[in-house]
C-alpha cells in the first residue's frame, strides 16, 4: 500500500469517526462544556499553524516563490475580503492573482 493511500484511508476513517460520534451522541452531550471549548481552541490553533506554515515554509512548487510574494498575496486577499463586503471568492482570486503577478514581474 502506498504512503498516499494509507494516509488518505487513515485520514478519512478518523474524519468519519468524528461524524459518527457526533451522530451517536446527538442530544446526549453538551457542546459548550469546557472540554469541548478547549478542543475547539486546539482545532483553531492547529489550522492557523498549518496555514502559517503553508505560507511561510511551503513544500512543493510554492517553495520557489519569494516570501514577500506569498505574504503580499495574503495581504491583498485580506484587503479585498473586507473592502468587497466579505466576499471570499473574489478575495481568494485576488490574493492568488497578486502572488502570480509578483512572481511574473520577477520581484524579489
Amino acid at each position: 500500500m502506498s504512503d498516499a493511500l494509507a494516509a488518505i484511508l487513515t485520514g478519512a476513517a478518523v474524519t468519519y469517526g468524528w461524524r459518527w460520534l457526533g451522530t451517536t451522541l446527538a442530544g446526549r452531550l453538551r457542546s459548550d462544556s469546557a472540554f469541548m471549548r478547549w478542543c475547539g481552541c486546539v482545532a483553531h490553533g492547529l489550522l492557523a499553524a498549518l496555514i502559517a506554515r503553508m505560507v511561510v515554509l511551503p513544500v512543493g512548487p510554492l517553495e520557489g516563490t519569494p516570501l514577500a510574494a506569498r505574504l503580499g498575496g495574503v495581504a491583498v486577499a485580506l484587503v479585498v475580503f473586507f473592502a468587497l463586503g466579505r466576499n471570499i471568492l473574489l478575495a481568494v482570486m485576488a490574493g492568488a492573482g497578486a502572488l502570480v503577478g509578483w512572481v511574473w514581474l520577477g520581484w524579489p
Partner: peptide, 11 residues
C-alpha cells in the same frame, strides 16, 4: 485534531 469540530457540529 483538525477535524474534531465535525463532532460537535454533527451533534
Amino acid at each position: 485534531l483538525t477535524n474534531f469540530r465535525l463532532m460537535p457540529m454533527t451533534l
